[in-house]
Nucleic acid binder design. Structure first.
Length: 881
DNA sequence: GCGAATTA
DNA sequence: TAATTCGC
């Protein structure tokens, strides 16, 4: 029989320092518990012990403190982020039915020593899992030690039995105590013999076997005089150290190995705990995801009655109820082969195969404005419905993903199963359970898919109650229903419309780039003295800083930095540098833009980006597959790409953008008189800033001053640090700090705002935009100065950037609405944070320009005007005024 | 500062 | 995964 005993404190420590900080969406730190469970799982799998238990230290002083007051005095206190996890870990072990032992006056090691002694006595094999070497002294024919370490989230371990130990140390395990008695252990504050280090101590233990023998034979000629002197002077210390280092194997505790025999975990408790800690991976691993009693948040709630709608009569009844219900929730199979509809306490499954033509008619009613629906990822649903002949789905009350995002904008996913776990304490299948291909084909398992869809529909309906309550408490109901929900339709339409590109010109541009890239490559290899992979920063670094001997200025984690900043400083040092910079620019344009865009042109000759509504922490949208929000504009060559974005035949592109929206919002929010004045009189804000910061009149502002002032404005808006600002404008950190200080002296309203917003954020734990969009800021309470500073910059920046996001989103909803209402054929096709692009029939251009400017400027009335400029043209480059 | 894409 | 570069 085999027992495994874990050194709880030691392993949780390794886990904590070996895994980056993780926390739940409510900010509870979980990395140490997570790591502990991962390690435990691995150990159990490898060792398959018959019994498992865990030993912990207690805070109370031990017999060792009585012996030696400095004992462990030098230990750094446990960080709060770890201390808070210890109770969670103990709760986890309890739920797993793994006994834990702790004893006042003793350390975990003593408990381990005692447990292992009892095991030996009873003929059990004992495996000690720990991160510390202290336990190595316990090794015997029946006792092994597994030394656990974690590196970059990977668990590594070394096994020590008698043979392995003796091979490594050159003496038997018991000598470990003698070794420590001589060399000491700074981490435990065991003094050892002064002047005797590891080398000497190892040698002495190997030769004499033990401290007592050593002192008996102290006069032996084999000991150097200097060492003999140290030993004889340090005898007291050696003896005390010996006692401190010796593990007490006689802790008074009731223990029998059979007490720790493995038992099944308490699935209910463990499931609840893992849900709370958001350990969804472990839930699968521990089999806690089956819909059983243990998985339900509310055991009193009866499972909803689920039925397939198999005939016309049942369908008719359902249809009748839908229009009468205050709301229902809907989940669709991605191919629309089936839908699940949850009412208050029943779920109906409707499959295309069962109903023929009636199914399509049913979908028509279901997705009309007459049926009020809750669903998940409404924009995506709106994107698939046109394929089923429903181009204008309507009547969506609530999107659970969007609500989840507004409630906590910094989570990394808002899948329905995660929302159900977080807000209903309920475990439901993931989307794969029904979204897989072919669930509704002849060979598919439609029952299983139906069950999963029913679970989703039912959860979505209940999430509506919970999440809408939270939105209301947080004051975001209006933002949700006047901005985010309506935006689903706007974005779905924009995605479907797409942006036409000119593939011929794009290809030609790519070919031009290719040939220049080829020339550059050849020339660079010739100068560098041989070919290498230019796209590999690692190889480039080696060539530049080793082969060519250029001075390396910056390093990255893995080697030399070769970014544009670094290379630019080396521009004059070697003729190859400008070529590399040019190569970089060209290959970026070619791979990301020329080739990248060609790959995603649809059969309609247009590019359909996908707007993400739940990604950014500030409330902005993001754009993927492809990202149309980072099409080049800054350089002449890059902006060529914009000439390939064109309108449909007979149409024109209209482009409108906000002028300085973020700085205007800063002026409005901070009420800074100087900044407000600048915007009210229509001055050049960067010039004004330069004149303020450099203390000159506006006509005396030089180009360099304006550029730097612009960077400072930019820095304030994006919340960058003094360090990043110094990098940006190429001055020292001290100088950058000086600019910021002067800036805040001149714009004293901004300084006051900064102070106030940080204080409020600290108090509330979050910041909000003008429309009450929220971002939580746990960073402000960090003990790490860098993290706290980051939190402070976010506190300043998010209300500004987030309000800009609110404003343009509302403008989009209104523009979309007005284009439709006024019967125009013009369509919104793209948003780039402060810019809207509309494709308009030639004869609508002027009306559309006016409409865009009116709606964009009229979103809100602030203490400074919101200004938008519109232009038009035959391509994006031309249209951007 | 953030987010996306490409490349090794 | 890390480094780089594009946009706002």
């Amino acid at each position: 029989m085999k027992l495994m005993i874990l050194d709880g404190n030691s392993i949780v420590n390794r886990a904590f320092y070996g895994i980056r900080l993780l926390s739940t969406r409510e900010g509870v730190c979980t990395n140490a518990v997570y790591g502990f469970i991962a390690i435990l799982g691995k150990l159990l799998e490898e060792e398959k012990p018959d019994a498992v238990c865990c030993a912990f230290d207690l805070k109370a002083p031990t017999f060792r403190h009585a012996e030696y007051e400095d004992y462990k005095a030098g230990r750094r206190p446990m960080p709060d982020e770890l201390a808070s996890q210890i109770p969670l870990l103990k709760e986890t072990l309890d739920a797993m039915n793994i006994p834990r032992y702790e004893q006042e006056g003793f350390e975990a090691d003593d408990i381990i020593g005692t447990v292992s002694r009892i095991c030996e006595a009873e003929g059990w094999e004992c495996v000690i899992a720990t991160g510390d070497k202290d336990s190595l002294q316990l090794i015997s024919p029946r006792v092994r030690v597994k030394l656990v370490s974690t590196r970059m989230g990977q668990t590594e371990e070394r096994n020590y039995d008698e043979a392995a130990f003796t091979e490594q140390y050159g003496f038997p395990p018991a000598g470990m105590v003698d070794l420590k008695a001589l060399m000491g252990d700074p981490s435990d504050h065991i003094p050892g013999v002064p002047g005797v280090g590891e080398k000497t101590a190892m040698d002495l233990v190997r030769r004499f076997g033990s401290v007592s023998r050593l002192y008996e034979e102290l006069e032996s000629p084999g000991i150097k005089d200097s060492v003999r002197k140290k030993l004889s002077e340090g005898r007291d210390k050696a003896e005390m150290s010996y006692r401190l280092a010796t593990i007490d194997r006689q802790v008074p505790m009731e223990f029998a190995p059979a007490d720790a025999l493995r038992r099944e975990a308490d699935k209910k408790k463990l499931g609840e705990l893992f849900r709370r800690l958001e350990f969804f991976k472990f839930m699968d691993k521990f089999g806690l995801n089956e819909t059983g009693e243990g998985a339900k948040g509310d055991p009193d709630r009866p499972a909803p009655e689920t039925a397939w709608i198999a005939d016309g009569k049942a369908l008719e009844e359902l249809t009748g109820r839908l229009e009468a219900a205050p709301f229902i929730s809907v989940v669709c199979h991605p191919g629309l082969e089936a839908v699940a509809i949850a009412e208050e306490n029943r779920v109906s499954l409707v499959a295309a195969d069962d109903l023929g033509d009636e199914y399509d008619r049913f979908l028509g009613v279901l997705f009309s404005n007459r049926v009020k629906k809750v669903s998940h990822e409404v924009k995506e649903l709106m994107g698939t419905l046109p394929e089923a002949g429903i181009p204008a789905a309507d009547g969506f009350l609530f999107d659970t993903a969007l609500a989840g995002y507004l409630i906590s904008a910094t989570s990394n996913s808002y899948t329905l199963d995660k929302l159900a776990a977080a807000y209903l304490s309920e475990s439901i299948p993931t989307r794969d359970a029904f979204a897989a291909q072919g669930a509704f084909s002849a060979l598919g398992d439609r029952e299983a898919a139906g069950r999963a869809m029913a679970a989703w529909a039912s959860a979505a309906g209940r999430l509506y109650g919970v999440l809408s309550g939270k939105l209301k408490e947080m004051g975001m109901t209006e933002l949700f229903s006047t901005v985010e929900m309506p935006l689903c339709r706007v974005l779905a339409d924009m995605e479907r419309a797409g942006f036409r590109v000119d593939p011929k010109r794009l290809r030609e541009f790519g070919e031009m780039l290719s040939s220049r890239i080829g020339e550059l490559e050849e020339e660079i290899y010739r100068i560098a003295g041989g070919p290498f992979n230019l796209n590999s920063p690692k190889q480039l670094g080696e060539v530049l800083f080793e082969r060519l001997g250029l001075p390396a200025m910056k390093k990255t984690k893995t080697g030399y930095s070769t970014n544009a900043d670094v290379l630019d400083k080396l521009r004059e040092s070697h003729p190859v540098i400008p070529m590399i910079l040019e190569y970089r620019q060209f290959s970026k344009l070619k791979s990301t833009y020329a080739d990248g865009l060609l790959k995603v042109i649809g059969p309609d000759g247009r590019i359909h980006t996908c707007f993400q509504m739940t990604v950014t922490a500030t409330g902005r949208l993001s754009s993927t597959e492809p990202n149309l929000q980072n099409i080049p504009v800054r350089t002449d060559l890059g902006s060529e790409i914009r000439k390939m974005f064109i309108p449909a035949e007979g149409q024109v592109l209209v482009d409108a953008d906000y002028s300085q929206i973020e700085l205007r919002l800063l002026a409005h929010i901070s009420k800074d008189p100087v900044m407000c004045q600048a915007f009210l009189t229509g001055e050049d804000i960067h010039r004004v800033t330069a004149s303020q910061v450099f203390g000159v009149s506006q006509d005396e502002v030089t180009h360099l001053m304006r550029t730097r002032a612009k960077a400072v404005n930019f820095g304030i808006v994006y919340g960058i640090s003094d360090y990043s600002l110094s990098q940006d404008i190429g001055v020292t950190v001290a100088e950058a700090r000086h600019y910021i200080r002067t800036y805040l002296e001149k714009y004293s309203g901004v300084r006051a705002y900064m102070k106030e917003i940080v204080e409020r954020a600290k108090h509330d734990g979050y910041v909000v935009t003008l429309m009450n969009r929220r971002r939580a800021l746990p960073e402000l309470n960090s003990k790490d100065h860098n993290i706290r500073s980051f939190g402070e910059r976010v506190a300043l920046n998010m209300p500004i950037q987030g309000t800009a996001a609110d404003i343009i989103k509302l403008a989009m909803v209104r523009v979309h609405d007005r284009l439709n209402r006024e019967g125009l054929r013009a369509r919104l096709i793209l948003q780039v944070h402060d810019e809207l692009i509309v494709e308009a029939p030639r004869d609508e251009v002027e009306r559309v320009k006016t409409l865009l400017v009116e709606e964009m400027e009229g979103v809100m009335s602030l203490s400074v005007p919101l200004e938008a400029d519109a232009g038009s043209g035959e391509n994006w480059y031309e249209a951007k005024a």
